[in-house]
Every structure is written in structure tokens, then in C-alpha cells.
Amino acid sequence: MEDNRDILKKIVSSATHRDVSDFNINLVDDLNMDSLDVISFLFEVENNFNIKVPEEDIDQFELLNLNQLYDYISRKQK
């Protein structure tokens, strides 16, 4: 069974056509996502993990960083 890390990797790969192993990266700065890419990416995250990511959480929890996003998803699913 896929764990959250694998699912997140797949979403990143589908959105950017890049495979990531190190999660200490920023979606915009390192993966060159623009504002529309980020919206679409978060849409997939919400659907795949069955969570809601409110707008204010993006800045507060620095969710454009993949590590932070991974931790955030884990907390939300508890």
C-alpha cells in the first residue's frame, strides 16, 4: 500500500514531470510552479488525501515547502 510520501511524490511528478526524492524543496522556487500550478497541485493534494487546505494555512504552515506539506497532511489525517 502506498504511503503518503509515495502519493505526494506521484502528485509532484504528475504536475511537474519531475521525480523528487528530497522533500526539502519549494514548489515555486525549486520546481518552478506558477500560481496556477500551485492551485492545481493543492487541488490534487486535497482530493488524494481527503483533506481541506485553507488559504491561510498555506503561508502559516509554509506549505509550499514539500516537507512542511507532508507533515501538515500527516497531522490533518490524525
Partner: peptide, 12 residues
């Protein structure tokens, strides 16, 4: 316009 809400609604 809240572009993210509109995108999520539309594509969902």
C-alpha cells in the same frame, strides 16, 4: 475573485 475556490469548484 477567489481563483482557487473557482478552480476547485470547476475542475471538481
Amino acid at each position: 475573485m477567489n481563483g482557487r475556490n473557482i478552480f476547485n469548484f470547476t475542475v471538481g
